[in-house]
Design a binder for these strands. Structure first.
Length: 205
DNA sequence: AGCACGATTAACT
DNA sequence: GTTAATCGTGCTC
């Protein structure tokens, strides 16, 4: 449907311009690519979470449109990158339709290209810890606030997602989103976290 | 102007 | 299991 073959072009706008839960599921196995200064860094997406609408009390847009959340109200296929805990950057993909705030938080990837750079940026950490958290993957791939609002459907900004692998349904697990603190029910328990449980490596690169 | 808190991480007991 | 790090955001005064 979205070309899982050898193509190396960014996923099209139509991929993102769908309900956020569908996009989140569809991103498992896709390849997150960061191009910087001619070098290519990438990883296969293995975990992500959906945030949907102003009624979702876990979504940043619960307070409505603000300077920070404006990107979530924009067109599908753009990056929503935000800063938190005074030190961490988080990367999301905005989904459709335009005017409705929704996004997918990328929580974990499995390192593919550019491992030497990731190892340097994640110095002191073992391979399995390079990109297994939302702030870890942005650090390893060099994603920060300069990319907020970037168009993921074009290679121009140096950040996009390509079709790559397809996560078999039997290996996809859903569950509650992580780290929601005092978010009330039912939002805190909704199974809007998607994880590909494949043992891609058996623990080794 | 002041404040509490956060879609986290790493280090520690 | 606990906790410090560290600062932008958005709310309340």
């Amino acid at each position: 449907m979205y070309n899982t073959g050898m193509s190396a072009s960014p996923l099209p706008r139509d991929f993102y311009d769908r309900p956020v839960l569908d996009v989140a599921r569809g991103l498992l196995g896709a390849r997150l690519v960061r191009m910087e200064e001619g070098r290519r860094l990438s990883g296969w997406i293995v975990e992500c979470e959906a945030y949907r609408g102003e009624e979702d009390q876990a979504c940043h847009a619960r307070r409505g449109r603000t300077p920070r959340t404006a990107v979530m109200y924009g067109p599908a296929g753009r990056a929503y990158v935000y800063f938190t805990y005074g030190m961490h950057w988080m990367l999301n993909c905005v989904t459709g339709p335009e005017g409705f705030p929704a996004a997918v938080l990328l929580r974990a990837v499995w390192p593919a290209e550019g491992r030497a750079v990731m190892a340097e940026r994640r110095k002191g950490q073992p391979f399995a810890r390079w990109t297994d958290g939302p702030a870890k993957l942005t650090q390893a791939l060099g994603v920060d606030g300069a990319l907020n609002g970037a168009d993921l459907c074009s290679p121009a900004a140096g950040l996009w997602i390509e079709p790559a692998l397809t996560a078999p349904e039997a290996q996809v697990v859903t569950g509650p989103r992580v780290g929601l603190g005092k978010t009330p029910e039912p939002w805190v328990s909704l199974p809007w976290r998607f994880r590909w449980t494949a043992d891609l490596d058996g623990g080794q690169p």
